[in-house]
Design a protein around this nucleic acid. Structure first.
Lengths: 183, 183
DNA sequence: ACCGTAGGAGAACGCTCGTTCTCACGTCAA
DNA sequence: TTGACGTGAGAACGAGCGTTCTCCTACGGT
C-alpha cells in the first residue's frame, strides 16, 4: 500500500470514527484497526493525533462545501439557489449516520483547548457565510439577509444534530422563503 | 462547612470550569482546587464525575430559563416579549466569559458517549422551544413561527460562541422582527 | 545468496485522571 | 477520658491512551 492510499484510508477511518463517536473517545489504535494502516505508518503520515484531526476537518471542509455548491448551482434562479441550500441541508440531515455539524461538534469538544481546531471551525463557518453572501449578492439582496440565512442554517444544523431529525431544514427553508418574500 | 454549602461550592466550581474549559479537560482535582471541597466530600455528594456534570447542567438549565423568562416578562406586549428574547441573548453573549451555549458544547463533547447528557441537552432545548411556543401562542401567531424563531436563536447562540461576538443576537432579532412583520 | 531498508504487529513507556485508600486529627457522646 | 466517627490532605491504584520501541519478516539491488 503506497503512502497516498494509506493516507486516504487513514483519513476515511478518522472521519468515520471522529465524526461518529467524537474525537476524544477514539484512540489512535481505533484508527489503526478501522483503517488497516499500522501505527508506524499513521505516525509517519500524521506525527500527532491533533494533525490527523486537522487533516480530517480540512478534507471534510473541502468536500462539504464542494457538494453544497455543486447542488446549489444546479438551480438557475438566484432565489432558487438560496432555497436549494436548505434543501441540500435536509438531504444531508437525512443521511444515515448524520450526527450534526462536524465542526460544531469539534468546537464543543476541542474549541476550548485547541486554538488550531477553533480556528478551523471559524474558517469553515466564515467560508459558508461568505458562500451565502455570494448567493445573496447574486440575487441582488442586501448582505444583511445573508447573515440571517446563515443563522437559520446554523440553527437547523444544530437542531437536526441534537434531535436527530431532518425537519429543521424544512422549517429553516420556510423561514428563508418568507424572508426572501418580504424583502 | 455543611453539605448544602459544599454542594453549592462544588457546583459553582464545576460550572466555572466545565463551562470555561470543557468537561473532559477538567479533572476532579481541579474541581477540588477551585471549590475548596475535598475529594472525599465531592465523591460523597456526587459519586461519579458524570453525576457532577449532570447536576451542573441541571442547575444551569433552571437558572438560564429562569433568567430568560424573568427578562422577557418585563415586556407587556406579546410581540415585544418575543423580541426581548433576542435582546436577552445579546446581553448574555456580551457577558465576560461567554463561551457559547453550555448544552451545545456539552453535546459536542459528550453527546456521542453519554446518553444521559444527550437527553439533558434535548430536554433543555425542548423546554426553550416550548417557551418560545408559549410566547408565540400568546401573540396569536402560528406555532410554525416558534420553530423558526427557535432556529434563529440557536443559530445565534452557536455563531456567537464560535465567533466570540454578540452581533448574531442583533441579526437574529432583525430576522425575527421581519418574520413577525410579515406574518 | 546477502545485506540494508521498510514495514507490520504489538509490547512497552509515560502521563493523565477517575476513583479509592491511608492516616492523622478533631469532635462529640457516654 | 475514651473510642467511634467524620473529615481533610494527599498518596496510591488502575485504566486508558498517545507515542515510541523492539523484533521479526519481506523484499530489492548487487
Amino acid at each position: 500500500m503506497d503512502s497516498a492510499l494509506a493516507r486516504e484510508r487513514a483519513l476515511d477511518a478518522a472521519e468515520e470514527l471522529f465524526y461518529g463517536r467524537g474525537v476524544q473517545s477514539v484512540g489512535m489504535d481505533d484508527v489503526r484497526g478501522t483503517s488497516g494502516v499500522s501505527l508506524k505508518r499513521l505516525y509517519q503520515l500524521f506525527p500527532a493525533k491533533e494533525l490527523l484531526v486537522e487533516a480530517y476537518l480540512e478534507r471534510r471542509d473541502t468536500r462539504w462545501r464542494g457538494r453544497l455548491a455543486e447542488y446549489a448551482e444546479r438551480h438557475g434562479e438566484p432565489d432558487e439557489r438560496i432555497l436549494a441550500v436548505f434543501d441540500w441541508l435536509g438531504m444531508w440531515f437525512a443521511e444515515p449516520g448524520f450526527r450534526g455539524c462536524a465542526w460544531l461538534n469539534a468546537y464543543g469538544e476541542l474549541g476550548a483547548t485547541s486554538e488550531r481546531v477553533a480556528g478551523q471551525v471559524r474558517a469553515h463557518k466564515r467560508a459558508f457565510r461568505e458562500y451565502l453572501g455570494a448567493l445573496v449578492a447574486a440575487a441582488e439582496r442586501p448582505d444583511a439577509l445573508a447573515g440571517q440565512l446563515f443563522l437559520l442554517a446554523e440553527g437547523a444544523m444544530v437542531t437536526a444534530g441534537v434531535t436527530r431529525s431532518a425537519e429543521p431544514a424544512a422549517e429553516a427553508r420556510e423561514a428563508a422563503r418568507r424572508l426572501l418574500e418580504a424583502g
